[in-house]
């Protein structure tokens, strides 16, 4: 078959298998976001509150990337799980349960439950139908939160939340110092989970489902079950993100379940790069910092500038910021 001697072939075999088996190992650049986050803590002391929001939103975007980027499940209703998590934590905090970590845990479980139940129904479909169904789930939940005002506060939002210090030691302060570290730590754990899933055999099979669903059926994969599992996990992570936002802002409103929330998240992910695990780490800060800046410079028309930027990304920078990096790298290597 080949004219290599058997010894060369053996060496080749090991080299190829090693290269393939080592793909999940940590690379140096994976440390960048974390080092940058630590550096920013000291460099931008007056922006800790914004930083905490960014970290929580990165977790939200990361959970969406697991669906859209890895499993190929395109959804417009991911805010459903974010909102459910936010309300779960918020309702607890407003009704006498003030311990933050257990709130996050409950938020994850409740969001996972909603993800599982809705996934059972909506994941039977694909494409445009799926898009509409996910949108409907979020709209239904938003209406539920609106009508059930005795618990959720309705359109006024949920007020009167009280959060205890973390571990009984670190009080949530006005400047967001605690929130910054807290959200970063939870994001780190969420990222570890997401990363592990992506590089697991299960995660690879999700990529298979995204690339060619029919072929996955043909090799005997329980495609529907796999989708439901990742949908549930993703919902749980989104729920945790919602709980973080609720706890650090001490406010939960109907906007946490809104279509615009889901849409905005997709925009952030597209800017950073979908299906790359790190798109969220680039897109979310870019978007939220731009939002923060633009809304001060041009409070009325700042969405116009975001829109213009999006058009630029879609036309000239497919794959977002990370996509541009990848193409640059490929060109350099092929030279």
């Amino acid at each position: 078959m080949t004219d290599l001697s058997s010894r060369d072939l053996l060496g080749d075999r090991k080299a190829v298998i090693d290269a393939f088996a080592r793909r999940h190992r940590f690379k140096w650049y994976e440390a960048i976001p974390w080092l940058a986050a630590i550096a920013c803590y000291f460099l931008f002391e007056s922006y800790h509150a914004l930083g905490a929001q960014i970290f929580a939103t990165i977790l939200f975007a990361l959970s969406l990337d697991l669906l859209i980027g890895f499993a190929g499940i395109v959804t417009l209703g991911h805010a459903a799980f974010f909102g459910v998590g936010a309300y779960a934590a918020g309702v607890m905090a407003a009704n006498g349960w003030h311990e933050p970590l257990s709130e996050v845990l409950v938020a994850a479980i409740v969001a996972a439950g909603v993800g599982f139940a809705s996934g059972l129904i909506v994941l039977r479909t694909a494409g445009l139908t799926l898009l509409m169904q996910t949108l409907v789930v979020a709209a239904l939940l938003q209406e539920l939160a609106n009508k059930w005002s005795s618990v959720t506060g309705g359109s006024d939002g949920l007020l009167g939340m009280k959060i205890d210090p973390i571990f009984g030691l670190f009080r949530f302060d006005l400047f967001g110092d605690t929130a910054y570290v807290y959200c970063l730590a939870v994001l780190f754990i969420g990222w570890l989970i997401a990363r592990n899933i992506v590089y697991s055999s299960f995660g690879r099979s999700l990529t298979g489902i995204r690339e060619n669903t029919n072929r996955m059926h043909a090799i005997g994969a329980p495609v529907d079950r796999r989708k439901l599992v990742i949908y549930t996990i993703s919902a749980a992570l989104a729920g945790v993100s919602g709980a973080l936002i609720a706890q650090t802002t001490a406010l939960v409103g109907l906007n946490t379940l809104a279509l615009s929330k889901s849409g905005e998240l997709i925009i952030m992910l597209v800017i950073g790069g979908i299906g790359r695990l790190y798109g969220a780490f680039i897109g979310v800060p870019l978007y939220m910092i731009a939002q923060d800046r633009f809304s001060q410079i041009d409070p009325i028309y700042w969405y116009f500038w975001i829109g213009l930027f999006m058009i630029f990304v879609v036309v000239f920078a497919r794959g977002g910021v990370l996509g541009v990096f990848e193409r640059f790298n490929q060109r350099r290597r092929s030279r």
Binding site: R23, H24, N196, I197, Y199, S200, F202, G203, S205, A221
Partner: peptide, 11 residues
Amino acid sequence: AANDLWRPAGH
């Protein structure tokens, strides 16, 4: 093995 959520595929 494809049901294994945790171990890296490379393992």
